[in-house]
Simulated scan of single mutants.
Amino acid sequence: MSQLSTLTPKRDNFPINLGYGTKKFIRDNMGILIGLFILCVVITIINPNFLTSNNLLNVLRQTSTNLYLALAMTMIIILGGIDLSVGSIMAVTGVVTTGMIALFDTSVLVAVLAGLLVGMIFGAINGYVAATTIIPPFIITLATMNIARGAAYVITDGKPVRVMSDSFNFLGSGYLFGILPMPVLYLIILLILCYFIMNKTKLGRYMYAVGGNAEAARFSGINIKKIQFFAYTFSGLMAAIAGIVLASRMFSGQPTAGEGAELDAIAAVVLGGTSMTGGYGRIGGTVIGALIIGVLSNGLNLMGVSSFWQYIVKGIVILVAVYADVIKRRKKA
């Protein structure tokens, strides 16, 4: 295991505690934090409504769905993989959950558990094939992306499944104590969980080691197949959570839900400084990256910018941010 210490890159310190961890988090993410601050200032100058409490809560609620996916995507990209199927898994889990409630009159708990199970099954398929074959993860998840999306259309015949259950709709639209949106509460819990996995467990250290040098990690005794299987299964679970929350917010399961969601998740991870070649990444950076995307989308909506132009603007911002990060890393090297 002595080799493992040399393989494991320096990990992030998400500011769970004040003091050194917070200072290090700010120092490591200074560039994107400044970018987020400037973006907020510019949007506020153009439209002061941006800083209202209702709008900020709306930004957090919208960003939370992307972050569910991005947290798991961070793990997979650190491993040197990719998961293109998460958007489609969102759709199929959403329609399975709403279909069980609306068509079979099952309880909300049973329907939600069924949706989570479906997401984990798709993730486990990705993980098993990635771990036991030489097929690139890009191709594997591209295939399951189409399978899951097709399943969502087959189940619903291309039509939304409407749900009028107050208890189900509360999952995505309710508030804790009338203040905190439920999707944000789930996000806080999942953030703590992912931080703990990546920074306080052997599993997290092994992910960095495998992404940094898979062959050396194998010689160090790390079971790479188990690590890959866990990461993709966890990604399926997180996509299922995102799909169920989104279906609850829309009061229906939509077979078109989650289209392009995988790209937003990857963008958040890359903006947060995670290396696409694997071996390096930060959960804290991913959070900031997702906030940048969420704030940008919200600001463009407030400014009345057409959704068609929003794709172009977001693409330019992502390209510039990634290029700046590459330059910074070259200077450090």
Rank of each mutant, 00 (worst) to 15 (best):
Q3T: 15
L4F: 12
N13L: 08
F14Q: 00
F25Q: 07
I34A: 15
V42D: 09
I43S: 05
I46N: 12
T52I: 02
S64V: 11
L71E: 02
I77K: 01
G81M: 03
G81S: 02
I82V: 13
I82F: 00
G87Y: 04
G87A: 06
G87Q: 04
T97G: 01
V112Q: 03
L117K: 03
G119L: 01
I121K: 05
G127C: 03
A130V: 11
A130R: 05
T133E: 12
F138Y: 13
I139R: 14
I140L: 01
L142I: 10
A143F: 04
I147M: 13
R149V: 07
R149S: 00
Y153Q: 14
I155L: 15
V163R: 08
L171M: 14
Y175I: 00
P183Y: 08
I189Q: 08
K200H: 15
G211P: 05
A216H: 07
R218Q: 14
F219W: 14
I222N: 12
N223G: 13
I224P: 11
I224H: 13
I224F: 05
Q228W: 06
F229H: 06
I241R: 03
A257H: 05
G258E: 06
A261E: 12
V269P: 09
V270M: 13
G273F: 05
G278W: 02
G278P: 01
G284P: 08
G289K: 12
V295I: 15
Q310N: 12
I316E: 06
I316Y: 00
I318F: 05
V320D: 10
D325P: 02
R330H: 10
